[in-house]
């Protein structure tokens, strides 16, 4: 493993490698360090806390079984873990699309209660926003489209219907949004 400038990412790599050797203590540490971030992704996609919990459970079981496939030359550990979480949550969303999935406002109350317990994580999160300003370079239409695709799994057509905009307009917003995001991130690194 090649050490990086980021001790947090290095530690995650080591934990993933230990998971690949089926060291269950490593999975626990990995869970402690990443579950709040991955749960946020899953909740953003699924929006139902109970389903999100079940999905998160599946995600960590999947991570446990596929940690050996992680290649640190290709992806950073948190990106790899987030990709698994997002894909699993989007699969879940598609599977249960016709079910009543969205909770009442109670869920939001519960979530806000939980947030009180995650203040330290929130601080960590706020301090790691070095490139977050790149999202601010997107206009609201571009950002909304990217988020609808990324977190809701919307196709171009679904987005056009949802936003009541011509298909071509939506495609342009996405294309320009991606271009702008890439340019900003490339310049920030």
């Amino acid at each position: 493993m090649t050490p990086t400038q980021d001790p947090e990412q290095d530690q995650l790599k080591q934990l993933l490698q230990a998971c690949a050797r089926q060291e269950d203590r490593a999975l626990k540490k990995l869970y402690q360090q990443t579950s709040a971030h991955l749960f946020a992704i899953v909740l953003r996609i699924i929006k139902n806390e109970s389903h999100a919990e079940d999905c998160l459970q599946q995600i960590f079981v999947k991570i446990w079984h596929s940690a050996g496939q992680y290649n640190d030359d290709i992806a950073r550990p948190m990106t790899w873990l987030s990709t698994i979480a997002r894909n699993q949550a989007l699969d879940w969303l598609r599977r249960y699309k016709n079910d009543r999935l969205h909770d009442s406002d109670d869920v939001l109350v519960e979530m806000s209660d939980q947030r009180q317990n995650t203040e330290h994580l929130a601080e960590q999160w706020q301090s790691s926003t070095a490139v977050h300003h790149c999202l601010e370079t997107l206009n609201s239409d571009q950002r909304q489209c990217l988020e609808l695709a990324y977190f809701e799994g919307f196709s171009h057509q679904e987005m056009a219907e949802h936003l009541k905009q011509p298909l071509g307009t939506v495609k342009t917003w996405i294309r320009r949004g991606l271009e702008r995001l890439k340019l900003c991130i490339t310049q920030s690194i």
Binding site: A36, H37, A52, S82, Q114, N117, T118, W125, H132, L135
Partner: peptide
């Protein structure tokens, strides 16, 4: 970046 903008939620 879209993921990292989300505030962590403790399960």
């Amino acid at each position: 970046l879209l993921n990292s903008q989300l505030e962590p939620v403790q399960p």
